[in-house]
């Protein structure tokens, strides 16, 4: 069995008095693609923000065997190879594609790395479209290109664990297909991936293991192939069966 890269124990996050996620325990093993799926508002983005240290949370998070919650800052985590591609992409709109990518290497630069040109060429090899647009301002890119730039920028940090928040959001099917193909390619290159998705079928097709998040808790978990054929996943999305919860 592959060693554990990231693990949470009973992770809880509150917004004011409301609990957004409740006792979530997940595990990501080295070299795996793990997906967290679930309908809107289930707490998927909150989970990622808590892992990244952007939100105060309770419970335990261990990354590479070290507890991180409240102990390691965001830049510390990025330096250790835990990198998040956020749902809103958060690009530097009025800066060029190349500068956006360069800044992805900022945490490594501070730790002495100077091989940014080579790393950028590697990113361009994965996303040739970005090479074509390197001098263009990020704000003028199309939706698909923005997602590619967000992922490329994260890859400049040479992540050990890449966390993707809804990479398919608002993208046309052909581009979604391309993005998921790259996710698989990253896995082959040795990057572990935590893939948060609403697009359950696509995510489960590429993932090794999956969790279904509903109302802030893990409702189902299993290897991805099993979940793909589980009718309860569909119910949790479209409410076809008229049942109120699949957690029961």
């Amino acid at each position: 069995m592959k060693p554990t890269l990231l693990e949470t124990q009973d992770l809880c996050v509150n917004y004011g008095r409301v609990e957004a996620i409740h006792k979530v325990s997940i595990r990501i093993r080295e070299g795996d693609i793990v997906t967290v799926i679930g309908p809107n508002g289930a707490g998927k983005t909150t989970l990622l923000s808590a892992l990244m240290g952007l939100l105060p949370a309770r419970g335990e998070v261990a990354y590479q065997g070290q507890p991180t919650l409240g102990k390691v800052s965001v830049d510390g985590l990025v330096g250790k190879g835990l990198v998040l591609v956020p749902e809103k992409r958060e690009l530097f709109g009025s800066m060029s594609v190349a500068d956006n990518l360069l800044l992805g290497a900022f945490a490594r630069h501070r730790r002495g790395a100077r091989d940014h040109a080579r790393t950028m060429e590697e990113v361009f090899a994965i996303f040739p479209r970005l090479a074509e647009r390197r001098a263009q301002e990020a704000g003028t890119l199309s939706g698909g290109e923005r997602q590619m730039l967000a992922m490329g920028r994260a890859l400049m940090a040479k992540p050990t664990l890449l966390m993707l928040d809804e990479p398919s959001l608002g993208l046309a099917p052909l581009i979604v297909k391309e993005i998921f193909r790259i996710v698989v390619q990253l896995k082959d290159m040795g990057v572990s991936v935590l893939l948060v998705e609403q697009n359950a079928r696509a995510a489960l097709q590429v993932a090794d293991y999956g969790y279904v998040l509903e109302n802030g808790s893990v409702a189902l978990e299993s290897d991805a192939r099993t979940l793909l054929n589980d009718p309860r996943v569909i119910e949790s999305y479209l409410g076809l069966g008229g049942s109120h919860s699949i957690a029961a």
Binding site: S168, G170, A172, P173, V176, K177, F180, R181, V184, Q198, N199, A200, R201, A202, A203, Q205, V206, V233, I234, Y237, L238, L240
Partner: peptide
């Protein structure tokens, strides 16, 4: 994708394959 995909009575929408695909994704990897 910002566009009008389907319109109808609730039962029609629930069984519309296009809607199902929009929600769950239909991409063949």
């Amino acid at each position: 994708f910002g566009e009008h995909l389907a319109e109808g009575l609730p039962q029609e929408i629930q069984t519309n394959p296009k809607v199902l695909e929009a929600y769950l994704g239909g991409v063949d990897a």
